[in-house]
């Protein structure tokens, strides 16, 4: 079978590996590199459970072919600093946890881009991450708190 060699930066460190042409970044991360924090929810870019950063932008890693990673920068949930997750614990932002790494990745990206909140609500920005347990309130409260809001969202009506 044809294999391709790709070299990219993963969580700040260089990696090089052989992949099949059809391999998804999600599978490479999980099954080849052992980074199982990134979850598969739907495999078609609807649920956001597999969110990683590609060159600093959140993407669904189930839709990204690994061979395209050459020379690029990938960051996964394993790269995040766990110390600042208190709001997520306190607000009940996780229940079953299957969507959670993706939720946290999107939330962190919002936190690093607070200007987005001038034109979008947290609910709009989180709409790419499906959660079936929380009804979203715990997540929205936590993100709002994490980005420096007053703890309760100010939803536009």
């Amino acid at each position: 079978m044809t294999t391709l060699t790709v070299a990219f930066t993963l969580n700040g460190k260089p990696v090089s590996l052989d992949v099949a042409p059809a391999d998804r970044l999600l599978d490479t991360l999980r099954y080849q590199l052992g980074l199982t924090g990134t979850k598969e929810g739907c495999g078609e870019g609807e649920c956001g459970a597999c969110t990683v950063y590609l060159d600093g932008l959140p993407v669904d890693s189930c839709l990204v072919p690994t061979f395209q990673m050459t020379g690029r920068r990938v960051e996964t949930i394993e790269s995040l600093d766990a110390r600042s997750l208190a709001a997520f614990e306190r607000c009940g932002a996780t229940q079953c946890g299957a969507c959670t790494p993706g939720v946290v990745m999107t939330a962190w990206w919002i936190r690093e881009h607070p200007d987005l909140l001038g034109s979008h609500t947290v609910r709009e920005l989180m709409a790419g991450n499906l959660c079936r347990c929380t009804g979203y309130d715990g997540i929205i409260d936590a993100v709002t708190e994490a980005v420096g809001g007053e703890g309760r969202e100010n939803r536009k009506r």
């Binding site: 949930i77 394993e78 766990a82 614990e89 996780t94």
Partner: peptide
């Protein structure tokens, strides 16, 4: 939640 941190960090 007891296992919250494990879930939040993947």
């Amino acid at each position: 939640r007891r296992e919250a941190l494990a879930k939040l960090t993947g």
